[in-house]
């Protein structure tokens, strides 16, 4: 078994409305050293899927199904056991580097926190490790004593990445990590994540709405639409030869840098027929 994470029959519903599926019957698995992109529009359930893996769903929501991480179903674990996995074996990066860092603590302290909590590092050993992490993400080591507001958006996202890889997790979940950044900074961060993934042989689950980013970073692609996974495949399969009508329609909306493509908005009425045809055929 090479998969590091396998998800089966994952459903997410509001507690007070258990028949409304926000995520419906999701299933996929992730392997070490590979980046899997979940792509979809807002409300498609891509972030909820990631939060469910981490056991971080809000109190109004509930999930069913299994999340098997390294052979163990982590949905069955209590909070205490989950805490040992979160941050140590599964790292996470969020969209907004501005709001995810604590403004009154130095970035060095914040990077060190999980090292102390999970690995018990202290003193000079901790300092050395924090400095090496800063170096890995391309931030000068003197910056360990800076506060988040003294850093640019790109640097803050680098700090977030340093925090998330501090304990060398087997799986890194990145939820739109570059959406709030300028394109040139985005390109640097994508490259950094790709290098780290290869060097540490991590599995990366990368959530995005941007097909350009998918083309740059993905090995495998999962397309979600209204809570359901409609297509999975390698990057080449999904981008070059999409099978599902929604994937095709969505790709036709994406402007290209060459300006050759004629944009075509999604015709939802047609799409609905297409989906029904497909279901009838199956």
């Amino acid at each position: 078994m090479t998969e590091i994470l396998t998800i089966n029959n994952l459903n997410v519903t509001p507690k007070n409305d258990p028949h409304r599926f926000l995520v419906k019957d999701a299933a996929f698995s992730l392997s070490p050293g590979k980046t899997t992109c979940i792509v979809g529009e807002s409300g498609s359930g891509k972030s909820l899927t990631a939060l469910t893996i981490m056991g971080l769903l809000s109190a109004q929501l509930q999930s069913t199904g299994s999340v098997i991480f390294k052979g163990e179903d982590i949905t069955l674990l209590d909070n205490k056991a989950l805490q040992k996995i979160r941050g140590a074996k599964i790292g996470m990066i969020f969209q907004e580097p501005m709001t995810s860092l604590n403004p009154v603590l130095t970035v060095g302290y914040q990077i060190g926190e999980s090292l102390t909590a999970h690995l018990g590092l202290k003193g000079s050993g901790l300092k050395l490790r924090v400095e090496s992490l800063l170096q890995q993400v391309g931030i000068p080591i003197e910056r360990a004593n800076s506060y988040p507001d003294e850093l640019s958006g790109g640097q803050r996202q680098r700090v977030m990445i340093a925090m998330s890889i501090a304990c060398e997790p087997a799986l890194l979940i990145a939820d739109e990590p570059t959406t709030a950044l300028d394109v040139t900074v985005q390109a640097q961060i994508l490259q950094l994540l790709d290098e780290l993934k290869t060097r540490m042989n991590m599995a990366m689950l990368f959530i995005t709405h941007d097909f350009g980013v998918v083309a740059d970073i993905a090995d495998d692609v999962i397309v979600m639409f209204r809570g359901e996974i409609v297509e999975t495949g390698t990057k080449k399969q999904v981008l070059d030869k999409p099978q599902h009508p929604y994937t095709k329609a969505l790709l036709a909306c994406v402007p290209d840098a060459e300006g050759k493509k004629q944009l075509k908005p999604i015709d939802y009425a047609w799409l609905k027929d297409g989906l029904n045809d497909k279901k009838a055929a199956a």
Binding site: T184, K235, A257
Partner: peptide, 26 residues
């Protein structure tokens, strides 16, 4: 637009255009 995308003259413009996601792979 056509001219700038085909042959950007300034280093900064070149940097911006090469950072467009999905260009590398295409």
């Amino acid at each position: 637009v056509v001219d700038i995308y085909n042959a950007p003259q300034q280093a900064y413009t070149q940097q911006l255009l090469s950072a467009i996601p999905g260009r590398k792979a295409a």
